[in-house]
Every structure is written in C-alpha cells, then in structure tokens.
Amino acid sequence: MFTPLSTLSPIRGQLWKLASGFALLVHPRHLARKFVRCFLLIQYTVICWCARYYRYCNTPAELVTAVEMALRGLVAIITGSSSGVGAGIALAFSKEGAKLSLTGRNLKNLEEVVKDCKKAGCQDVLTNVGDITQDAFRKTLVESTKKKFGKIDVLVNNAGISSLCPLQSATKDQYDRMMALNVEAPLFLTQLAIPHLIESKGNVINISTAGTSTIAPGGGVYVMSKVALEAFTRYLAQELATKGVRVNTVNPGIVPSQMISRIVDDKGQAAEVEKAMIKATPMGRACAPEEMGHIVAFLASDKAGFVTGESFRADGGFTMTTPAIA
C-alpha cells in the first residue's frame, strides 16, 4: 500500500526518498539507460582527445612551439654569419623566434643563409655585407639594426680568421689580420652596441675555440687571439654586470666549416685535418653548426639569466683527452 509522504515524519520522509531513488537506480530500465549514457560519455571523451591530438600533429611547427621560443622577439646581431658556425647560430636563433641582423663578406652565401632562416620561420632579417674590421662598417651595422628593429638585445661576435703559422715564423701581416678580426673587431663593435644592450638588459656572446685549452701545432697566433677574446669576455662581464648585461664565451670543438679549408688549402690537407680532429674527439664526430647554434641560443636566453663571465666549452670531449694534435 502506498504511503503519502505528507503522512511521514521529516526523517522518515527523507529515508523514503532515498529508498525510492535507489529503487529507481537499480531498476533494469534505468540501469540500461545509465550504461548507454556512460558508454556515450566515454566515446565522446576519446573522440575529443583524438581530435586534439590530430590538430596538434597537423599544426605548423611555428605555432605549436610559439610559447616555447626562448628568443621570441629578441633582436640579435650575428657577425660572420654567411657560413659555418655563424650560419648555424642564425638558423638556431630563427627557430627560437629571434629577429636577425646578419653580416658577412660573402653576399651569395649570406643570401642562402637568409633563405634558410626564413624557411625556419624568421621573416625579420636584416643583412649588411662588409668588413667588420672597418670602423665605418661597424657603425653602419649597429645603426641600421637599431633603425630597423628599434633595439638590440644580443650581440654574437662570431666572425674570425685562422692561419697555420708557428710563432717562430709568424709574420707581422698574419698577426695583424688575426688580431684585427678576432680581437679588435669584437671589442670596438661591442663598444658601439653597449648603450643599446644596457637599455634592453641584453647580452654578448663571443665565439672562441676549444683550442685555448690544448695545443695544436701552428695555431699559436690564432689561439693567442682567442685567449685575448676570453679575457675580454671576463673583464667586460665584470664591468657590465651591475647594468644587467651578461657576457659569455662559447668554445667550439671541431665544426665543419670553410675556415679549415682556408687554413690548409695551400697544402690540400683540409679533409685530413678534419679527420684527425674528429678522431681525437671522444664522441667520434664533428659538431653540426646548428647544434652549436642552439648552445649559443641557450646562453642568449633568459634560461641562462644568471650566467655571465663564463667560457662554455662544447667540444665533444676534445680537450678532455687531447693535450696536442700531431
């Protein structure tokens, strides 16, 4: 017999509601409905996750990684960027969202690097072709970069030159050319950029060599210039630390580049020299230019915001086991 709820006490009424609700839940018809609803919910959830995964996989890389770009919006001057390590740095910076001011002496090579950078997603690229050892060109480089982009955040002093010349037979011309490009150019270009770097709280990265920690026959003058560059890094880092500007050095090991060919092209030994250096590298390979570029990009980013005055060696273990190359 059905008992009206109005005739029950409040507590008994609540118990009756619960009991009635439970009876409805366990009724076969309601159980079937809930099973169907649960199945549809699971199916809907799976479809949603599949759709999200498909959309992620088919979204252009530059959109997927936009929030991960460590250099997004930063303006970087990269010298010697028409080949080798400089080109690798430019490409790595492009993928990290930087705006680029590239310079080199080979217009054709520089144009190819610009094409690669644009394919990597960087549409803001300024180029200046000229000799970085000249005062007027350095001034033009800094002023044109500031004019186009409105700021300068990163300066990468990568341009360099080497030559096999034992100290006992090195000429004044060989010494002057290496010191002019490897030491004087970074010093005076950096001086021009410092006011802008202070304004942006930016940083300077100088490209040295792993050879400053080992001995390579015939590399005396070249290594002298790079040791000077590393001293420049430490002293400038100390001077600019209180102004929020970081200064660091990267010391690459063997990187396939035109420099090796230029050093030994008169002897036709470029391939042999590169092979010997790779053999002396514990990791058993050379470093790809872009691979070195990602190391430079890390130091240029806020991820290395507490690093200054340091020399960052990336040589595959070369200097760890190689006191000299015969």
Rank of each mutant, 00 (worst) to 15 (best):
F2Y: 04
T3Y: 03
L5S: 01
S6R: 12
S6C: 07
L8I: 12
R12Q: 10
Q14S: 13
Q14N: 04
L15M: 08
K17R: 15
G21I: 05
K34G: 08
V36M: 08
F39V: 14
F39D: 06
Y44Q: 15
A51C: 10
A51V: 12
Y54C: 10
T59Q: 09
V75K: 10
G88D: 01
A90W: 01
A90P: 02
L91Y: 09
S94A: 13
S94Q: 05
G97V: 03
K99Q: 13
S101Y: 03
N106C: 09
L107D: 03
K108Q: 04
K108R: 06
E111C: 09
V114D: 03
C117N: 00
L126Q: 13
L126I: 04
G130M: 06
I132W: 09
Q134W: 00
K139T: 07
S144V: 07
S144M: 08
T145Y: 12
N157S: 07
S163W: 08
C165P: 00
P166L: 05
A170V: 14
A180Y: 06
L181R: 01
T190Y: 05
Q191L: 13
I198C: 12
G202E: 05
T209R: 10
T209I: 05
G218H: 14
G220E: 09
G220Q: 08
V221A: 04
V227A: 11
A228F: 12
T233E: 04
T233I: 11
L236K: 08
L240W: 13
K243D: 03
G244V: 14
V247M: 10
V247K: 03
V250Y: 06
G253W: 04
V255R: 02
S261N: 11
R262C: 01
I263Y: 03
A280Q: 12
C287F: 10
E290C: 11
E291H: 11
I295G: 02
F306D: 02
S311H: 14
R313C: 03
G317L: 06
P323A: 01
A326R: 11
